[in-house]
Design a protein around this nucleic acid. Structure first.
Lengths: 217, 217
DNA sequence: TGTTACAAAAGTGTTTACAAAATTGTAATC
DNA sequence: GATTACAATTTTGTAAACACTTTTGTAACA
């Protein structure tokens, strides 16, 4: 799966990052020549990168009209959350089973202490960084590369949404409470509870999304 | 995600099919020039197709040495089954919730009657065709394209294995029993039971794989 | 006979150039 | 002043050519 060194692989990574961060907005046009001069690579390599990104569902290619950043089909958002629910559940279950209980201490402290203050101060960047840490640690502890890849492909599509959900009234607080509950289960080594709580967490995020559908989608 | 008409998209599909069917064995070399003359397309399009297939994890590209059909890392096989367990579970749950109960009648009859005889006669092709039918119907009824794509990406990697597992002593019988149980749950509209039974089914397949590890991996 | 050195061949990676399509800009007409 | 027809520009799609790497075949030598 890794294609670390060659230039095309790097280009794919950079574009993937750019799309996930929304530096290139959905629907934005990606010019072949434009990118080839920006990165100093031949146009054929840009086209190869496009082919890979299209396969990943991050861009759409329209014949003779070029490539645009894929728009997130609102109908698919809920499908994504349904799927994500079971994957995230599996992730924390495996992580709980594989890692020593005490290894979750620092994250638990983070979520019980500093993260609370980030919410109160509306410091969403710090808050999201905490979420990212939880995500990375869980995936690493789960030790399942197949699962990791699938979660990645979901994250890169939903990263947009998370920033919109987090600012909804009360959502950050509730999400935080639920994460603490998950971490507590992980800390006491209760894998089944961790999975159930994480799934509950995803369902509540989806419900929140449904409530404010007209504002965020 | 669809790239139906253009030639590169077709080429990707044909190669994907060929790899999934094992017409191209794992480790087999895929020559650019060779394929470009076979399909009558320029070499650049073959390279674009390679880029897409590499992203999908179906081939590996080694710099200056070309592309080979990806070998299935034995360590990943169990990771695949863990992940597949939760996805298949979700699939039958959604299918049960979305489709009318009676719509599973014909599959239930198939699995209770003819499929039994296929097993007894060791008619594995007919048997696998029945499995495929169950799979397609479930995915369609689930109506979740995100889930469908993930299951696809798993199937195209494991199709090899299924043919080896099915011939293991007693496996076909047990798998059939478990499928009947799942279908019965679906037929009476019990989504939770269907999910639990399907997951149980995946775990038993994984266990079987572990028992005969040295023979099939 | 086996091994090393070297040359030829094959294949991949990259660049360039050209053809076709779409978009944009302009001018003529109603 | 708005609309249509047409030309110019831009951009994508395709083909060919070139350069570099790996592999293979051959011959000289120990």
């Amino acid at each position: 799966m890794q294609q670390g060194l060659n230039r095309t692989g790097q280009l794919i990574e950079v574009l993937r990052e750019r799309i996930a961060r929304q530096e290139a907005a959905p629907g934005a046009k990606l010019g072949e020549l434009e990118l080839s001069v920006e990165f100093g690579v031949p146009r054929t390599q840009v086209r190869e990168a496009f082919s890979a990104l299209e396969q990943r569902g991050l861009i759409e290619r329209i014949p003779n009209r070029g490539a645009i950043v894929a728009r997130l089909d609102p109908a698919n958002v809920f499908h994504i959350y349904d799927t994500r629910e079971v994957l995230e559940g599996l992730c924390v279950r495996l992580a709980t089973l594989n890692a020593p209980k005490e290894s979750w201490r620092d994250l638990l402290d983070l979520f019980r202490g500093p993260m609370q203050r980030y919410v109160e101060k509306s410091d969403f960047d710090a808050f999201l960084a905490g979420y990212a840490q939880f995500r990375e640690r869980s995936i690493e502890a789960a030790g399942n590369p197949v699962l990791a890849q699938m979660l990645d492909s979901i994250y890169e599509k939903t990263q947009v949404l998370i920033r919109r959900i987090i600012i909804l009234p009360g959502r950050a607080q509730q999400g935080l409470r639920e994460h603490v509950a998950v971490l507590e289960a992980m800390h006491r080594g209760d894998a089944d509870a961790a999975e159930a709580l994480r799934r509950e967490n995803m369902r509540s995020a989806k419900a929140c999304l449904q409530n404010f559908q007209k504002y965020v989608l």
